[in-house]
Amino acid sequence: MNIFRLTGDLSHLAAIVILLLKIWKTRSCAGISGKSQLLFALVFTTRYLDLFTSFISLYNTSMKLIYIACSYATVYLIYMKFKATYDGNHDTFRVEFLVVPVGGLSFLVNHDFSPLEILWTFSIYLESVAILPQLFMISKTGEAETITTHYLFFQGLYRALYLVNWIWRFYFEGFFDLIAVVAGVVQTILYCDFFYLYITKGMSGCALPA
């Protein structure tokens, strides 16, 4: 565990909690892509099945459980409790265009052809593109609320910090996971355009790229 990995995890947690609190406090999920949140719930579910097979640390287990619980809570708020405020008309990204190719790729390119490993690979690939429905929704409406841009900032920061973590681990631990790194680079690139606007437009509810 290095400082980049830890701050990456905390950024990820911040993003998840920011979104959950925003929906809870405003009693509204307007501007939030339920499809992205469903994909993230699927990502955590398929990745953390190793909760049943291996124990790494109390930190590891706790964070996994928190991520899963928060992502399901978010999905529940969007599709059940505050369903009336969910803007489904603008959340029109076709998720099958992500899930089907990602599913195929995880069967073809993985570390080991076993069920848990394929599901782990699937979750890594899916996470890298899971934010696309949210970015697509913002590009359709042309605007995002300030708090939504904070959410996206911490999501992007998390992945950027993980990239530094992998560089660190490569040099100091000889650790290198090609699948995670390639997917992580793709995921980080998706946020670059957003990062630029977030910083230049004063981190407020700004018009985002079409």
């Binding site: 995890d9 964070m63 080991d112 973590n165 996971d177």
Partner: peptide
């Protein structure tokens, strides 16, 4: 190693 190394990350 690759096989076990990635499992400690979230």
């Amino acid at each position: 190693g690759n096989e076990s190394g990635h499992k400690d990350e979230l």
